[in-house]
Write a protein that binds this DNA or RNA. Structure first.
Lengths: 348, 348
DNA sequence: GTTTAGCACTCGTTTCATGCGAGTGCTAAC
DNA sequence: GTTAGCACTCGCATGAAACGAGTGCTAAAC
């Protein structure tokens, strides 16, 4: 059987209706739809075909039909047109980004907030990766006899710090000297270059401190370590607005999954080089998310993708609107960060 | 009417049972309780009295009775004995604190996790205040022509950073010089001293940079600004385990409240100098929390309270166990932080 | 051949009556 | 003061009946 134009139109109508109402869609509902112009009986035949083809499911005989994951997948891949945002929405997003931000973390938080408040789903934002950032400043602050804090600052104004063991033989003065040396040698380089830097390159002048230098490099690796990136959540409560989660057991499962930051992190990371990823229902690995969909997108500094953000909602989420909103937020966010970042390079 | 010893015993039995079962308690249930030894009829009379006194409520005629907020308040104030933790629980808590921690933020997160996993309620931990911390290191890192990052490190190894405007007249060299001066003048002092430091004290040698120095001091104030403290949450999903939140609407209200960090922050802050605070049901200000209780406690470095943590659960929470658990966690946490902190002072 | 009207049938949901049982309050006896 | 006994209340579970949204099939219409 073939999915001809008419079947497609009907399927789309069903999906549109279901996204809106969350209730199984009957043949009459569709036949009343003006731009279809077919009787309910015809629709029934078509729906029966669509069910056979795996696009529709019947919760039980004599209920209407519900789109399957396969239908959403098809919808997303071929039918969906990106929605236009209303002027208000656009203005609201822009407004949220027009304030002054103290640092990148604040921007990340704000993005999560905007995303959940505009979409009404649950949102998550992964903090930027630091690989491409350039080291601006590095310093070892002695804390006690055998511990110091390694502080680094990137050119985008992101600071990170690491507790680090110091050999007893090192005194404050030596740490200070080492800090100055590290600064001279490392600042201006990309963090991923620095982290993978061959020890020999540094050790020449600092032969006897080799072991300790090693520890410093490990910490620097930690700074671009993916594990160090945070996932900022917002709008968790929104999941309880959807009838699919009026069952507490289900809600608990999803909430448990959402609380597992490592899981969200993986969803935001494990993506190729496409702009958007849409993971629908059963396509999700985690059992708690088999009944919801996740949309993720990237944000950039200049042309370089440095992070991603996403939305979690029921499989019947309004994909086209979500994509439109995320697209706009991605733009605003990337622009903001790029300005912040480029401003630095301007001075070179 | 007076609350004599027998009424008290009966009330306690009712509360104990209700905490366990979440179901209205009937007179027969109590009369079967070995160490009461009264017939159900007698219990009924007493329960009727207790209801009249406001300690019990009846969801409807011919249901059992449910303790009121007033009963919990009385229970907490006068009847409650602190529970003993089992050896396992004690060991589990200790084990969670025996690992190596990279920094204070990690400890805060871990504390939230332990607290929710041991109590099975939702937990929150407020990050430490920095007032009493001593400034170890301060540096201005130039980012662009007119912006710099102010980085500070406390003696406990906590780093904070602030984006700051720099007058165009300042070049990198001057910033470096200023950094050195600030270090010399400020390090070793408590942050609250530094933040409230009179400008004149500093300005002497730096008269012409007065405006900029001002900005630096404002940032330093920001570091001890209460708004800068974070609330770490854990075990949010636990609220869905309780029958009182099997109603999705209620769950959503509570979840909304829990998502409002400013609210949690206030609950963790607005406390006098008592060790524990227990806020029961209607005593909570926020509407979403009128049906749950919050227990908070302090943690310290040495003798100085520097932060607090808490548990959110249904009003029928197991107060005595929660207090016992929090007491132990408070000890472990304070000990850990004190060691971290004292280690620093050891070197003076 | 496609479309549609018509109709019997299915099945979840709502409604209502009924009975059960947990629990109460009151009274009278101990 | 305590308790046994009993009538009474009321939520809840059970089951029957009616409802209605929706289906699938058939036969007629286009």
């Amino acid at each position: 059987m073939e999915l001809d134009a008419r079947k497609l139109r009907i399927l789309q109508a069903i999906i549109d209706d279901y996204i809106l109402t969350a209730a199984p869609v009957g043949s009459r509902t569709i036949s009343k739809n003006a731009d279809i112009g077919l009787s309910s009986a015809t629709i029934r035949n078509e729906m029966s075909d669509l069910e056979e083809m795996g696009f529709l499911e019947q919760p039980h005989t004599s209920a209407g039909r519900v789109p399957s994951d396969k239908a959403y997948r098809m919808y997303v891949n071929t039918i969906m047109r990106r929605a236009m945002l209303s002027g208000e929405e656009l203005a609201s997003i822009r407004a949220h980004y027009s304030q002054r931000f103290g640092d990148v973390d604040e921007i990340v938080k704000q993005t999560a907030r905007v995303l959940s408040s505009v979409t009404k789903y649950t949102s998550m934002v992964l903090s930027p990766r630091l690989h491409a950032a350039r080291l601006k400043y590095i310093h070892l602050v002695p804390l006690s006899e055998n511990r110091a804090l390694l502080v680094i600052v990137t050119d985008a104004g992101l600071a990170r710090d690491f507790l680090i063991r110091v050999p007893r033989s090192f005194d404050e003065y030596q740490l200070e000297k080492l800090s100055r040396l590290l600064n001279a040698r490392l600042s201006g380089h990309r963090l991923d270059e620095v982290a993978s830097m061959h020890l020999g390159e540094l050790a020449g002048e600092l032969a006897e401190e080799k072991g300790f230098l090693d520890a410093v490099l490990v910490s620097l690796q930690g700074s671009i370590d993916e594990g160090a990136r945070r996932v900022e959540l917002s709008g968790t409560r929104n999941i309880l607005n959807f009838p699919e989660y009026s069952d507490v057991g289900r809600a608990r499962n999803l909430l448990s999954a959402i609380e597992r930051k490592d899981l969200l992190y993986r969803m935001l990371m494990e993506r190729g080089d496409v702009e958007f990823t849409i993971t629908i229902g059963g396509e999700n690995e985690d059992a708690g998310m088999k009944e919801c969909s996740v949309v993720t997108a990237k944000y950039r500094v200049g042309d370089e993708p440095i992070g991603s953000f996403g939305v979690i909602g029921p499989t019947r989420m309004n994909y086209s609107r979500v994509v439109a909103v995320m697209s706009q937020i991605g733009l605003s966010l990337s622009e903001l960060l790029t300005n912040m970042f480029e401003e630095e390079h301007g001075e070179h």
